[in-house]
Design a binder for these strands. Structure first.
Length: 488
DNA sequence: GCCGTTTTCGGCCCGACTGTTTTCAGTCG
């Protein structure tokens, strides 16, 4: 029983409770519990064995949720869930997949029209029956139809590195024009999540209208979906959505914090503010009507008694507690990296020669570069046999004699499974680091240019709370070699 | 359902937008 499975049961309970008109805070308790389990470094099954106290100690867990988690671990299911499924008409929760339809409207539609799935909802909309339901009108009916048509395509999240291509050209587009004085992309992009749903661009500008105008004329824009005096939204030809918000200088830090999220992190910060009689919003920190901060993120955090927290940690996974007790980790930085330990050359499926890779790595200021071409198992990647590796090793020795500051290490990428697939479901840096394991951040570069992917790897390490000392390739060469020999 | 340097009961983050209302509920981020 994995944590994710228990979390899924709790999420399903939350959904059914919500559509069943339960206390929204009770619903939130289940969602929160699911989120805590998903990001908890220890297996819930292990905690369950230790007894109820271990689970009760999890944030947001009380006796009830702890007992329910134990029940799911032991029986694979939850009696409460089966009970809820009997009470709530089948399929009603599924109606909430339509944007604009929440629990109340899903229930209203189900009760009034007897629809229990999206197909039934679409039929009712086409027959003009939705506008007859109290609280709905022609516009709601039209929107539901529109959203239903857009659903299957659904804007999927895109990989961070892909989003970065748009993000960086967007920033260049905005700042290069002189239309804005300051521009930053917030959201999960700034938290360096592996995937990004949309890009939230925040700017300050002398003239708001000019900034909005510049934004909607970004070359990759296909459709302008909203456009007001201080905000706009567009969809790019690739399907990626981008939002713009024009902020005042005095509230830029509050806006940046708010739109960087994550949502659970923001909620936790606001609760801290509330306890101090402060109101924290995207416009600033207020005591009554008086603004007490918001120009910078530091001001926002300081107002609630915290040091600045790096965006990569803002997931409400313990960073608030760590910050308040002065135990935030000094996170690894891209500049701490002294070498790349997994790369390829033309000897297998890389695109540059050993020498070109070495020179590019030296130009990046690295002390070492490990070339790790494929073993014979990976035939499609031109895997080398033992003789090939011996030959490459001699080439590495010759090259090291000529290089000035870089040392090339000879290695190999050996597949674990015959089909090459990963049998792990998750990037688990934090669990590794908490148990004292060291990690290595590498790019698997197959071309000189791809050595630049290092920053994405560092981002994932930071999201796992990795400090410099947790990452082996922040070590100077001699220490790295010592560690490797010791491990052997 | 959880939680407590105001509380063991009565709270629980905040604001914008939309559409349906005639002062506001529902939804979203």
């Amino acid at each position: 029983m994995e944590n994710a499975e228990v979390a899924r049961v709790f999420r399903e309970v939350a959904e059914l409770l919500e559509v069943g008109n339960a206390n929204p805070f009770r619903v939130r308790a289940y969602r929160n519990a699911a989120r805590v389990l998903e990001s908890h470094p220890r297996p819930v099954a292990e905690l369950a064995k230790e007894g109820p106290d271990a689970l009760d100690a999890l944030p947001g867990f009380g006796p009830d949720l702890a007992a329910k988690a134990v029940e799911v671990v032991r029986t694979g299911t939850l009696r409460m869930l089966s009970e809820l499924k009997r009470q709530v008409p089948e399929g009603v929760a599924g109606l909430m997949k339509v944007p604009g339809v929440g629990p109340k409207r899903a229930r209203a539609l189900s009760t009034a029209l007897g629809v229990h799935d999206l197909a039934g909802l679409e039929r009712a909309a086409r027959e003009g029956r939705i506008r007859e339901v109290p609280g709905f009108g022609e516009k709601s009916e039209a929107r539901i139809l529109r959203e239903l048509e857009a659903l299957p395509g659904g804007e999927a999240r895109v990989p961070l590195a892909t989003a970065a291509q748009y993000g960086e050209s967007l920033l260049a587009w905005m700042t290069g024009s002189g239309a804005v004085t300051r521009a930053e992309i917030a959201g999960s992009y700034r938290r360096l999540r592996e995937t990004v749903g949309d890009l939230d661009l925040l700017v300050t500008a002398a003239d708001h209208g000019t900034a909005v105008e510049r934004f909607v004329s970004f070359p990759a824009v296909e459709e302008v979906t909203a456009r007001g005096p201080t905000r706009a939204a567009v969809r790019l030809r690739s399907g990626l959505r981008m939002d713009l918000r024009v902020l005042d200088e005095e509230s830029f830090g509050a806006g940046l914090h708010y739109f960087t999220g994550s949502k659970p992190h923001n909620i936790a910060v606001r609760r801290l503010g509330q306890a101090r009689g402060l109101k924290v919003s995207e416009y600033g920190v207020f005591r009554g009507r008086r603004r007490v901060g918001g120009r910078t993120e530091e001001e926002v955090f300081a107002a609630v008694g915290l040091p600045w927290i790096p965006p990569e940690l803002r997931e409400d996974r313990g960073e608030i507690e760590a910050a308040s007790t002065g135990r935030l980790p000094a996170l690894v930085e891209a500049r701490d990296i002294r070498g790349d330990l997994q790369t390829h050359t033309v000897a297998s499926d890389g695109r540059d020669t050993l020498r070109a890779m070495a020179e590019a790595a030296e130009a990046l200021g690295y002390e070492y570069l490990a070339v790790t071409d494929h073993s014979p198992a990976v035939r499609v990647a031109g895997g080398m046999d033992a003789a090939g590796f011996r030959k490459q090793r001699r080439a590495v020795d010759r090259l090291n004699g000529r290089l000035r500051t870089l040392t090339v290490l000879a290695g190999a990428e050996v597949d674990i499974r015959a089909d090459g697939s990963l049998d792990l479901d998750d990037v688990r840096v934090r669990a590794a680091v908490e148990r004292g394991a060291k990690v290595v951040v590498s790019t698997d570069a197959h071309a000189a240019q791809e050595l630049g992917f290092m920053r994405w790897g560092v981002g994932q390490a930071r999201r796992g709370w990795a400090r410099r000392e947790d990452v082996l390739n922040t070590l100077p060469l001699d220490e790295l070699l010592k560690r490797l020999h010791r491990a052997r």
